[in-house]
């Protein structure tokens, strides 16, 4: 029996814009177990990104509890949250979010740098990860010299750098053509097979079905949380 990596309990997130309070999340609860591959769907503005930011400790819930690996994150200070982001969580963004001045290798090294890895060890590990995502021959390139798909693969390598508990991807194929998108999704499938825990926000039901589980959000509330039957079929395809 696998353990819960993530436990959300009645999580709320409200934004105050002048006198108006916008509730992006209005009490969301669910667990994610180690090895889960979760897709999050829902109409625009329903709070998917907000949820992912909370999961990624980039944002704190205004109410409710979020336990990551059994630890209540609301008790942690900024330094501890930074540590969690760097060591337990891996982010993959729609717009890649690579640092433009740095090379592929240096971008992959960024999370390692903040965990205080030695230069040689960090270089070695980053090189291995670049190879893992098929960019071994692009180490010294700058992001703008790469295609969107390649950039997203750098971002995946970077997210994997510190061997995180969970990978969080917000519309990772949103900016990609179907070909490079498919490559990224294949990479996700592989990671899932290797036992990684993944959470992916998407608008595409076809993509969502590749996950083992799909969570549907509507107006800041969890509408449905279903296991995908086609999981096995999609994976073998």
């Amino acid at each position: 029996m696998s353990v819960s990596v993530v436990q959300l309990q009645e999580v709320r997130k409200a934004y105050q814009i002048g006198p108006v309070v916008v509730e992006a999340l209005r009490g969301v609860s669910f667990d994610i177990r180690s090895g889960d591959y979760v897709s999050i769907m829902g109409p625009s503005g329903c709070g998917k990104s907000t949820l992912l930011n909370v999961l990624g400790c980039l944002d704190r819930p205004s109410n409710g509890r979020y336990l990551l690996g059994g630890q209540d994150t609301s008790e942690l200070d900024d330094d501890r949250l930074s540590f969690l982001r760097g060591s337990r969580l891996g982010f993959i963004f729609q717009s890649y979010n690579l640092i433009q001045q740095l090379t592929v290798l240096e971008n992959i090294e960024v999370p390692l740098y903040y965990q205080g890895l030695s230069e040689a060890e960090s270089r070695r590990r980053a090189g291995g990860l670049a190879e893992r995502v098929g960019l071994a021959n692009r180490l010294e390139h700058k992001p703008f010299e790469l295609s969107g798909g390649q950039q997203q693969r750098v971002a995946i390598a970077r997210a994997l750098a510190n061997d995180p508990l969970i990978l969080l991807a917000d519309e990772p194929t949103g900016n990609l053509d179907s070909g490079s998108g498919a490559e990224i999704l294949r990479l996700f499938d592989e990671l899932h097979e290797q036992g990684r825990t993944l959470v992916m926000v998407t608008h595409d039901p076809g993509i969502a079905r590749r996950a083992t589980r799909t969570i549907l959000l509507r107006d800041g509330l969890l509408e449905s949380d279903v296991a995908n039957e086609r999981e096995g079929a999609s994976r073998n395809a």
Binding site: D79, G86, F91, N97, Y114
Partner: peptide, 16 residues
């Protein structure tokens, strides 16, 4: 600003 956001998401503390 964007770079700072990225670094923070990648585990940089405020003092870093």
């Amino acid at each position: 600003t964007r770079e700072i956001g990225i670094r923070r998401a990648m585990g940089a503390r405020r003092r870093d």
